[in-house]
Simulated scan of single mutants.
Amino acid sequence: MGRGSLILTALLLLFFIVPADLLAQCSICTRTAAQLGERPAKALNAGIIYLGLTPFVIIGYIGYRWWQNNKIED
């Protein structure tokens, strides 16, 4: 298993271990979620966090690969 695969696996494990009890909703989404009930509101919140973190993971992976390919050997 390469270093990149190991880091990706660690990030995925961290993503699933961290609780999704963060408040990621704007005021409109909060009002909508309050009307839906507790369980759908938690699912909406988890979806917002997932959609927000996905670009960071992709850009981080691309940056890591770029850094690995351009690293100067001593």
Rank of each mutant, 00 (worst) to 15 (best):
I72F: 11
P19R: 06
L11V: 09
Y50W: 12
L23S: 10
Q68M: 11
L12M: 10
C29Y: 02
E73H: 11
N69L: 12
T32M: 12
V57P: 00
L6K: 03
E38S: 14
V57N: 01
T9G: 10
I62G: 02
T54M: 15
M1G: 05
C26Y: 00
D74T: 06
Q35C: 03
G47Q: 10
G2F: 00
L23F: 09
L14W: 04
F16D: 01
I58V: 15
T9A: 15
L8V: 01
Q25K: 09
T32E: 09
E73T: 15
L6W: 01
R65A: 15
A34R: 07
F56E: 02
G52Q: 04
A46M: 09
C29Q: 15
L11S: 06
S5E: 07
G47R: 07
M1A: 06
A34C: 07
S5T: 08
I59Q: 08
L23W: 08
G60N: 08
G47V: 04
Y50I: 06
N69D: 11
I72P: 11
I17D: 01
R31N: 12
I62T: 09
I62V: 14
G2M: 02
L11T: 04
P19L: 06
I17S: 03
A43G: 06
I17N: 00
L12G: 07
A43K: 06
L8G: 09
G63M: 11
D21K: 05
A46S: 13
G60K: 05
T54R: 10
M1R: 03
I58E: 03
T30M: 05
D74Y: 13
E38H: 12
I7T: 05
I7C: 02
R3A: 05
W67H: 11
R39N: 05
D21C: 10
C29S: 13
L51A: 15
F56I: 12
W67I: 15
S5K: 08
E73C: 07
D74F: 11
R39D: 05
A33F: 03
A46F: 09
R65F: 04
I17G: 01
L12P: 00
G47K: 05
L53E: 03
L13N: 03
I48E: 01
R65D: 14
L11P: 00
I72H: 12
E73V: 13
N45F: 01
F15M: 08
L23K: 12
T32Q: 09
G37D: 04
L44T: 05
L6I: 06
Y64T: 14
L23M: 04
I48A: 08
E38D: 12
F16W: 13
F15S: 10
V18L: 14
Q68G: 00
V18N: 01
F56M: 11
T9K: 04
L13H: 00
Y64S: 11
A24G: 13
G4K: 00
D74H: 12
L23T: 01
I48L: 15
F15E: 09
A34H: 07
C26W: 04
G60P: 11
P19H: 07
N45Q: 14
I72W: 10
K42P: 00
R65V: 15
Y50Q: 02
L13W: 12
S27G: 10
